[in-house]
Computed example of a mutant assay.
Amino acid sequence: MGRVTKELIQLGRDIVSTTVSLFKIMIPVIILIKIADELGAVTLLGELLEPLMGILGLPSSMALVWATTMLTNLYAGLLVLINTDATLTVAQVTVLSSLLLISHGLPIEGMISKKAGVPMWAVLTLRIGGGVTFAWLQNVYYEYSAKNQHTAQILWQNEPVVGESYLQWAMGQAQSLFSIFLVIAVLITLLRLLKLLKIEQLMSLIMMPFLKILKVSKDAANLAVIGITLGLSYGGGLIINESKKGNLTAKDALITVLLLNLLHSIIEDTALVLLIGADLNMVLWARIVFSVCVMAIISHVHTLFSSRKEKQELHS
């Protein structure tokens, strides 16, 4: 068996291993969320969140948008939004978008993060707390500056699916999972090519400012780039795979996954919220600055805690 054949076989195994790791998490959660939606749990959660909307300067009807987004994904939340009668200003759309960009898809992405070594409570605290804090800071800014108070222009319109059968829903989910499989296959193949061509070293240099601030190793650079640009599901799946191989330390996995929980899929997700009239500077650049600042604090605290723990173990 030639070297090229062996490399292709190993590549196929890595693709299948990464995909299976993700699907074991995603498929049960998708089914549970569908059941919860059928039982009215999403609507109930929206009602519980209504008081918080006032603090963020948003209409109470946006609670259902956020609840849907947290339990499902950004697409589903925006579908709820465009089918409401609420008229929002650019400031309100931006605040809502910032909340949704950080606090979405919590069951699936939370389980992926847990598989990568991050406790679920830490993920939920960071995602929900971070999303609310980021949105609140923007609301305070807009209230004092009085900027972007004109009505937002929603460019994305979509015909809602009425009376979708369970078979149609299942087929839609199957198509989404197949798309994820294709993306993972491309990503892992690309990573292998980057290593062969030594281009991964250039990507590490691009990530160096992040790495210095967050104090993670160069080995996490490529995975961080993928997660930040394409999404936590893809980056998280690769982190799980690399951690199993021993290519990432526990700290690298922890900090990288937490970073991706705050900052991921900046191309696709940012484009989506721009279609509903959000301010690019806030949902992209301000989000990057906010995420790096939060993670710098977490990384510093983690380093101090680890150092103190090591000293205690040495003296014991």
Rank of each mutant, 00 (worst) to 15 (best):
F290C: 05
T19L: 12
L22G: 00
K114T: 14
V95M: 00
P160N: 02
G277T: 05
K115S: 15
L137W: 04
V183Y: 05
T89M: 06
I9Q: 08
M1N: 12
S60R: 15
Q138G: 15
Q168N: 14
L81K: 00
T84Q: 12
C293F: 15
L191C: 10
A170E: 04
I276A: 00
S243Q: 13
L49D: 05
I128M: 11
T72W: 01
A296C: 06
I112F: 01
T69Y: 01
Q312T: 11
W66H: 09
G277A: 08
A185K: 11
F178I: 14
K147E: 15
G117V: 05
I199A: 13
I184M: 11
I199H: 08
A91S: 13
A286Q: 10
N83L: 04
K212V: 07
I108M: 11
E313S: 12
L205R: 15
K218Y: 08
A286L: 11
I255H: 03
M171V: 14
W169A: 10
M282N: 11
M208Q: 14
I15K: 02
G237F: 01
A76I: 07
R13E: 10
F210E: 03
A224G: 12
N158T: 09
T84F: 01
T43E: 14
P119Q: 09
V292R: 02
I288R: 02
I199T: 14
A63E: 03
M207W: 02
P59L: 01
R192A: 15
G131V: 08
T270I: 05
I102M: 08
A152F: 05
K114H: 12
K244M: 10
L71E: 05
S145T: 15
L58K: 00
V257G: 02
G117K: 08
T249Y: 01
S316C: 08
T18S: 04
G172S: 01
L45H: 05
W66G: 04
S176L: 15
R127W: 07
N83I: 03
N261E: 08
I213F: 04
T189H: 06
E143W: 07
M111I: 09
I27E: 04
V301H: 07
V93R: 02
D37C: 04
I206C: 09
G231E: 01
A116R: 02
E38K: 14
K212H: 13
V29F: 06
P51C: 08
G246D: 08
L49I: 04
L254E: 09
F178P: 03
T151F: 09
I27W: 01
Q173A: 06
I288M: 05
S176M: 15
